[in-house]
Amino acid sequence: TYTWNTKEEAKQAFKELLKEKRVPSNASWEQAMKMIINDPRYSALAKLSEKKQAFNAYKVQTE
């Protein structure tokens, strides 16, 4: 089980997950979700809006 003390740690864990699963920077949210949804870190960020925000930040960083 994973635990995160801060929102920032949770966001980092979520981005690490995207990186580890090699989600391409041109992937849509739907494509990315299919690649990461079974990992416990997918739940790091509770709100869908937070997940999408972190995903978009990840995409910008990896382009």
Rank of each mutant, 00 (worst) to 15 (best):
A46Q: 14
A32Q: 01
A57Q: 13
K51P: 03
E63Y: 05
E9S: 04
A10F: 03
N56D: 13
L45C: 03
R41P: 01
K52V: 12
L17T: 01
K34W: 09
K21V: 07
K19H: 14
S25M: 13
W4Q: 06
I36S: 01
V23M: 03
Q61Y: 10
E9N: 03
A27K: 04
L17F: 01
I36V: 05
V23S: 01
L48S: 06
E20T: 06
K21L: 07
E63Q: 12
L48P: 06
Q53F: 07
P24M: 04
L18A: 00
Q12E: 14
S25G: 14
Q61N: 12
M33P: 00
K7E: 14
Y42I: 02
K34L: 13
Q12I: 08
R41A: 03
K59L: 09
N56T: 09
T3R: 05
E9M: 04
E30W: 08
Y42E: 01
M35K: 07
A44F: 04
E16Y: 05
A44Y: 03
A57P: 02
N38P: 06
Q61P: 05
E9A: 04
K19T: 14
W4I: 05
L45I: 10
F55I: 02
K15Y: 15
W29K: 01
E50P: 01
K51G: 02
F55C: 05
A27T: 12
F55T: 04
V60L: 10
E20K: 02
N5R: 05
N56P: 04
E50T: 04
Q12K: 07
K59V: 09
S28V: 06
P24K: 04
S28C: 10
K21P: 01
A10I: 02
M35Y: 08
D39T: 00
Y58M: 04
W29C: 03
E50S: 05
A44P: 01
M35V: 05
S28E: 07
W4E: 14
Y2D: 14
N26F: 09
M35C: 08
Q53L: 10
S49R: 10
F14Q: 00
K51R: 07
W29Y: 07
S28G: 08
V23Q: 00
A32C: 14
S43W: 11
N26D: 15
L48I: 12
T3K: 08
S43T: 10
T6G: 05
E30R: 09
D39S: 02
L17N: 00
